[in-house]
């Protein structure tokens, strides 16, 4: 896949995790900055889905298509659900949910890359 795009997704995702972790210590709630960053991550994931589908159609590689699409769509669903779930909690645990989101997404992108290019390792 397009490496710089996936690096962008991973960087945004880790930024969400780091900012949320930084909010955890002084016990701050997710504000417009943290939530805005999460939506930026979502935007990057939408771009990744579009590019991923275009690549699938144009290059028609010999890969596990269902799994590939599963990862593309699956990671797209997580940020909105995480924001909703984080917002419903008045304590700092809500902020911690966004840490989980930021840590999980890079693993999904890694798996996505491995499905796209079997035998690919870091």
């Amino acid at each position: 896949m397009v490496v710089w795009l996936q690096l962008t997704v991973v960087a945004l995702s880790l930024a969400v995790a780091l900012l949320a972790a930084a909010y955890l210590v002084p016990d701050r709630r997710p504000d417009r900055w943290l939530v805005g960053l999460t939506w930026l991550l979502e935007a990057a994931l939408v771009v990744q889905l579009v590019v991923g589908v275009v690549l699938l159609v144009t290059e028609s590689p010999d890969i596990a298509v269902a799994t590939y699409l599963g990862y593309l769509v699956g990671c797209l669903v997580l940020p909105p659900v995480a924001v909703w779930w984080a917002r419903g909690e008045p304590s700092r645990s809500g902020t911690a949910v966004l840490v989980v989101l930021g840590v999980v997404v890079p693993f999904l992108v890694l798996r996505l890359q491995q499905v796209w290019e079997p035998g690919w390792y870091l």
């Binding site: 304590s91 645990s93 911690a96 949910v97 989980v100």
Partner: peptide, 18 residues
Amino acid sequence: GRGPGRVLVALYGVFAVA
């Protein structure tokens, strides 16, 4: 689903989807 349970549910949710 409250307090630390919020995080636990999030982790279980990831595994449920996966």
